[in-house]
Computed example of a mutant assay.
Amino acid sequence: MTGQEPAGAPEIDTSKPHPARMYDWYLGGKDNYPVDEAMGRQMLALDPRVPVMARVNRAFMHRSTRWLAENGVRQFLDVGTGIPTEPNLHQIAQRIAPDSRVVYCDNDPIVLAHAAALLRSTPDGVTEYLQADVRDPDAVLEGAGKILDLDRPVALSLVALLHFVSDEDGAHELVDRLLAPLAPGSYLVMTHATADFSPQESAAATEKLKAAGVTLALRSRERFTRFFDGLELVEPGVAVVPDWHPELGDPVPGQDDGVIPGYGAVGRKN
């Protein structure tokens, strides 16, 4: 594969935490910096299940990708992919359908630094990386359209991403813009953190991240469901993340120690 790196790609900013690198730290990775670990430890002090939440989101990505590939989807656009961790989305999809085409997209330069080495494709498929921000959907779609056929169904994956985009930044409009050019039969795949189950801890986490320059826009079940307006929800609809088709994967250790404060769903564009 070849990553699409724009001229003058931005340098890695280690002065403040970045969600992708914090996520990597939660998962036990090494592609993070002291500032990310420091903020991660503050989040752990508020809720020690944060690493479990990260693994639960990864497991949801595995299960939803498996379901989509088994149901005929052959094109995937994963926005906010984060630092590559095996097995990644293309490995799940291409294990079932070797001709699957996958585009990863993220705005953190450290993800770009690892993309070429880690995101390998099957000979029959395609795996590419696009350096772009979800807040610039036109750039995402332009880059993805060079690799994917947008006249055929695409699974748009926004896993553990939109809770970093506020309503003021147009989170719902961004999703609508990304979905608009996708063909009928495309899917929206999302997980999203919520304050529904732990409002006090969530409020404290939001304030700590805000002070560090990171937006955390936790949404209720109702507000999360709005992202799927006009789409046909795949059963079981909006669910607490571990409860979405658990038969398609292995349980994550610790996920049963209280409710995981996040929702997941997959919706089909008709």
Rank of each mutant, 00 (worst) to 15 (best):
G8Y: 11
A9G: 03
P10L: 14
I12Q: 06
D13K: 04
D13L: 06
T14K: 12
S15G: 14
S15C: 02
K16E: 01
P17C: 05
P17E: 01
H18Q: 12
H18R: 07
A20K: 05
R21T: 08
R21H: 09
R21Q: 07
R21I: 10
M22R: 10
Y23D: 04
Y23K: 11
Y26S: 01
G29D: 08
G29P: 03
K30F: 00
N32V: 11
N32W: 11
N32R: 08
Y33A: 00
P34H: 12
P34C: 09
V35N: 01
V35G: 02
D36K: 06
D36Y: 07
A38I: 05
A38N: 04
M39L: 15
G40S: 13
G40I: 13
Q42N: 09
Q42E: 15
L44R: 07
L46V: 15
D47E: 07
D47C: 11
P48N: 12
R49E: 02
R49P: 04
R49A: 14
V50Y: 02
V50Q: 07
V50K: 01
P51G: 07
P51F: 13
P51E: 07
A54P: 07
A54M: 11
A54I: 13
V56H: 00
V56E: 01
H62T: 15
R63A: 08
R63T: 09
W67E: 00
W67I: 03
L68V: 11
A69Q: 08
A69Y: 09
A69L: 10
N71K: 01
N71I: 07
N71S: 08
N71A: 05
N71R: 13
G72E: 11
G72F: 10
V73M: 09
R74Y: 01
F76A: 06
D78M: 05
D78G: 03
V79N: 02
I83S: 00
P84L: 09
P84G: 06
E86S: 13
P87C: 00
P87Q: 03
P87K: 03
N88K: 04
I92P: 02
A93Q: 06
I96A: 03
A97F: 00
P98T: 03
D99C: 06
D99I: 08
D99N: 11
S100M: 07
R101W: 04
V102Q: 03
V102Y: 04
V103Y: 06
V103A: 09
Y104C: 08
Y104F: 12
Y104L: 05
C105E: 07
C105L: 10
D106G: 03
D106V: 12
D108A: 13
V111I: 14
A113T: 13
H114L: 11
A116E: 15
A116L: 05
L118D: 05
R120W: 00
S121A: 15
T122L: 06
T122I: 00
T122S: 15
T122N: 13
P123T: 12
G125Y: 08
V126A: 12
E128W: 07
E128H: 14
L130Y: 01
L130A: 02
Q131L: 15
A132R: 02
V134T: 09
R135K: 15
P137L: 00
D138Q: 15
D138H: 13
D138G: 10
V140Q: 07
V140F: 08
V140I: 12
L141A: 04
G143Q: 08
A144N: 06
A144P: 00
I147K: 12
D149S: 13
D149Y: 11
L150Y: 08
D151A: 14
